[in-house]
Design a protein around this nucleic acid. Structure first.
Length: 365
DNA sequence: GAATCGTGGAA
DNA sequence: TTTCCAAGATT
């Protein structure tokens, strides 16, 4: 890779000018977000974790509920796992909930019950990577640490006209280096947030508001070239792989059977109606009885097809075929799930369940 | 480096 | 309908 492809170097004068413009813009234009009203490192850590790959508008209600229920490290560390998951259900990427819970316990055990101040220590916590460590260290503790997220990648590749594929490791390293140089100085937390805020509200993926809104438009190399929107240069996403599965409604004495998914993998630790994946090209009604027998050890009584719900995950496009039954014979046996529970249908909502499981329940109810 | 891991909003 | 994608971390 040549330096030409990497775009122009960043001079000290240019850095100073950029910092002043961006911080000035941020002071009068930043959004009033719940976590910006707090200086509590714990609250900032929770918000940064929730914001991973998740939109601000989606996070806000979850953040409010979570902080109300678990206001500090101690309350989170001592909470039941299902209680934590109930407050995460629907937000996605559930390993974040498990990691938060474990990290809170690690803070109690290894960090005197506090959120660590150093990025190096923060990264020892499960679920805290390079970005989150830099964000918490700079925003909560004023440390001169950089952040590079999707917003920063977009802003910096455009500003510096970096046209190389941002999936390449050395390109990302260059961006961390640039962001690191920029974060040095006063108010590193505000500056990092300003960079992200610009990406979120002005330097957007499509139809960026360069003129007259962007405070950096006169320093922006891709704008000067007249090609802002094609940056950043990133590889196309793969299409989700089609998958089919079955799930069944099994009543017994005014209750239905629910099972808890395994500790790891897709939708880990969440509850759902029993069922399982279909072999490729298989017909759901030909396999539903066998799948349920293997998974929970029950023989279904007159299963009837009730409908199909579709749900798209990042890498899966799932069709879930649903069946009602008159009940089932046998004793529940563990066939992969962690636990099972016969619950009243009107209490299904109290369990930590995924959006897919909710769709299935809604259709069958 | 590539896959895995959710969800819902926008164009 | 399709596509992209949003304050990433982990394996």
């Amino acid at each position: 890779m040549t330096s030409l492809e990497l775009g122009p170097p960043t001079s000290r004068a240019r850095i100073r000018r950029l910092r002043e413009k961006l911080l000035g813009w941020y002071d009068t234009n930043h959004r009033d977000l719940p976590w910006r009203r707090s200086r509590d490192p714990y609250a900032i850590w929770i918000s940064e974790t929730m914001l991973q790959q998740t939109r601000v508008e989606t996070v806000i209600p979850y953040y409010e509920r979570f902080l109300a229920r678990f206001p500090d490290i101690e309350s989170l560390a001592t909470a039941d796992r299902d209680d934590v998951y109930e407050h995460w259900a629907g937000l996605g990427y559930y390993s974040r909930a498990r990691n938060l819970h474990n990290a809170a316990q690690m803070m109690v055990g290894d960090f005197e019950g506090r959120v660590p101040e150093q990025a190096e220590d923060l990264k020892k916590l499960p679920g805290v990577g390079r970005y989150t460590a830099g964000a918490v260290a700079s925003i909560a503790y004023g440390q001169p640490e950089a952040v590079v997220d999707g917003n920063v990648i977009r802003v910096l590749t455009r500003l510096l006209d970096i046209r190389s594929d941002v999936a390449q490791k050395n390109v990302v390293e260059r961006l961390w280096h640039e962001a690191g140089a920029l974060a040095l100085g006063e108010r590193p937390g505000d500056f990092n947030q300003a960079l992200m805020e610009l990406g979120a509200t002005v330097c957007t993926p499509r139809s960026p508001r360069c003129k007259p809104t962007c405070p950096l438009v006169r320093m922006c190399h891709s704008y000067a070239k007249g090609d802002v929107e094609s940056l950043p240069n990133k590889p196309k996403n793969k299409k989700p792989r089609p998958v089919e599965a079955v799930a069944v409604w099994i009543p017994r004495r005014e209750r239905i059977l629910t099972v808890q998914r395994p500790e790891t993998g897709l939708l880990a630790n969440l509850w759902e109606l029993p069922g399982g994946e279909l072999p490729p090209k298989a017909e759901a009604k030909d396999h539903v009885e066998q799948i349920v027998r293997e998974r929970v050890g029950l023989s279904l009584l007159s299963p009837t097809y009730a409908g199909t719900v579709e749900h798209v995950f990042t890498h899966l496009k799932m069709q879930l075929h649903l069946f009602r039954t008159a009940g089932a014979e046998g004793r529940v046996r563990n066939g992969g799930h962690q636990a099972h529970q016969w619950i009243a249908p009107d209490r299904f909502d109290d369990l930590p369940v995924s959006t897919l499981a909710r769709k299935a329940f809604e259709l069958l109810q």
